[in-house]
Design a protein around this nucleic acid. Structure first.
Length: 462
RNA sequence: GGUCUGGUGGCAGAAUGGCUAUGCAUCGGACUGCAAAUCCGCGUAUGUGGGUUCGAUUCCCGCCCAGACCUCCA
């Protein structure tokens, strides 16, 4: 049995979580407003198309963070929105000749399926923008009343000069932005940096009645409104891909702090690094993206998960199929270790892994510990197998039984394979190695690998 | 052009003011009829030029290179 009896109790001493705060640009100790309920918000997808691997990476980074927080704190409230009103959605629906709600429902379902395949935990609340239009209008009204927003030509715009610390989050000054302005400045804006809170809708565009006419919200206001609705004026962590830092998060922060001056909005900002494909940012607009669906057709989901865990969440990661294959081989080894020494206790969370994750989610370092446990588990050490299992669970790995990992979902019927193994065994006994090897090669061509061990011949998917 | 991040062995990827993880691949060996799997063994790699220091990959400055943001983007 495990030697870690103490791990069945709350971990003590509990390591302190240190987390990089992109607002301060340093890694700092994380202290929640309310240690009995950690509250965080992550920006979810705009549902007009399948999410790609880059989108997935930030969702996965959030998942690791949430899993860790759940291990450290009694309660975690995790809000991740769905943006289901947006000009890209309108445009795509038009291109597809598809009803907007059909497009968003369909894409949202795909999104959920993809995340579930990756064993990404669902958020506590998953609000949709279209269900919070009144909340947004209320915020917009307050911003106008308080002099932070103005109405012009059917638009409501946020006045960035009304918020002295505008730019502080993303580390840029208004002057710099004005100096290097590459934005086409609409002539109804007072300042080039002013951004839309509400915009008018034509008759053929979706819209809601408002004091400013029939229209729809700008992009940023939804997150401010939904974060306030579910997490309050102040909460602990706000995150997303680092391409959201500006303008999206900067604008959210401006809106929220101006609307609720007594709150602090998000204390801690977490931004994930970009995923590259062929050395360039994977993005829908560049067209160099791979969908999750596409990847899962050729690799088990856990290999993809491991690939992402193998690099730090803040670093850029260049996706290649070779890395995916490598990740799959590593998973093979982990599952082989679990098969050799089945875990007997599931609560032996290894302290070194917890420590690594508490150091700004150092998943590569945590994985190196996992390798050590796998080595020892292959030697038959029970406590190592327990640690391997528990540590993998913390990272969202090992959702399968080893037998299913190695033998699940084959084209060939297992009984057929067993019969061929018997036939080959007979050939070997007769020292007819040519026939034995031919059987083995034929199976290999069908993706079935044979392994002769002391206890007999076993098979697995190749 | 402005802002920022980063450049570690063949590849991926941690860490650190002095002893440089881990994995994959390669190579050699054990095991095997041969393989596969497993095990053992093998690699001084920190872009570049200065500076600080007894000592720098780690701190500071310049340069080169790469990527991100400045426009929708996770």
């Amino acid at each position: 049995m495990s030697t870690q009896k103490s791990n069945t109790a709350p971990i003590s001493p509990r390591p302190g979580l240190r987390l990089h705060n992109s607002h301060q640009r340093t890694t700092v100790p994380f202290t929640p407003d309310d240690a009995s309920n950690v509250r965080l918000y992550f920006c979810g997808p705009t549902v007009y198309d399948r999410v790609h691997l880059g989108n997935l990476r930030s969702m996965l980074s959030a998942d690791v963070l949430v899993r860790l927080l759940k291990a450290l704190y009694p309660q975690v409230t995790y809000v991740r929105n769905i943006t289901d009103i947006d000009d890209k959605i309108i445009q795509r629906a038009r291109e597809n000749d598809e009803d907007i709600s059909h497009l968003t429902e369909r894409t949202t379902k795909d999104f959920h399926d993809d995340l579930a395949a990756l064993n990404i935990l669902p958020p506590t609340v998953e609000p949709r923008a279209t269900q919070h239009i009144p909340d947004m209008l209320e915020m917009i009204g307050r911003l106008i009343t308080q002099g932070h927003a103005y109405e012009t030509e059917g638009h409501v715009l946020f006045d960035v000069t009304s918020f002295p610390s505008y730019g502080a989050l993303s580390g840029r000054s208004l002057e710099d932005m004005l100096a290097g302005a590459r934005v086409d400045v609409a002539d109804y804006k007072r300042n080039p940096g002013d951004f839309v809170l509400w915009k008018p809708s034509r008759n053929d565009e979706p819209g809601w009645d408002s004091p400013y006419g029939r229209g729809r919200p700008g992009w940023h206001i939804e997150c401010s409104a939904m974060a306030e609705r579910y997490l309050g004026e102040s909460f602990d962590i706000h995150g997303g891909g680092n391409d959201l830092l500006f303008p999206h998060h900067e604008n959210e922060r401006a809106q929220s702090l101006c609307c609720y001056p007594h709150g602090h909005f998000a204390r801690h900002w977490v931004h994930t690094g970009m995923l590259l494909s062929n050395g360039e940012k994977m993005s829908k607009s560049l067209g160099n993206f791979h969908t999750i669906h596409e990847v899962l057709e050729r690799t088990p989901a856990e290999a993809l998960r491991l690939l992402f865990l193998g690099s730090h969440y803040r670093s850029t990661l260049d996706f290649t199929w070779e890395k995916l294959d490598e990740a799959r081989r590593i998973m093979d080894r982990f599952y082989r270790a679990l098969e050799k020494t089945p875990p007997a206790s599931t609560d032996s969370l290894p302290a070194d892994m917890l420590e690594a994750l508490c150091d700004d989610l150092n998943t590569p370092l945590a994985l190196s510990a996992l390798h050590r446990y796998a080595d020892a588990a292959l030697e038959g050490q029970q406590s190592a197998a327990n640690h391997l299992w528990a540590g993998g669970q913390l990272l969202g790995l090992f959702t399968m039984k080893p037998a299913d990992w190695f033998q699940g979902g084959t084209d060939l019927d297992p009984a057929t394979i067993e019969a061929l193994i018997e036939k080959r065994l007979a050939a070997r006994k007769a020292r007819d190695f040519a026939l034995a090897d031919q059987i083995r090669n034929d199976l290999a061509e069908q993706g079935i690998l044979l392994e002769d061990g002391p206890a007999g011949t076993t098979w697995r998917k190749g």
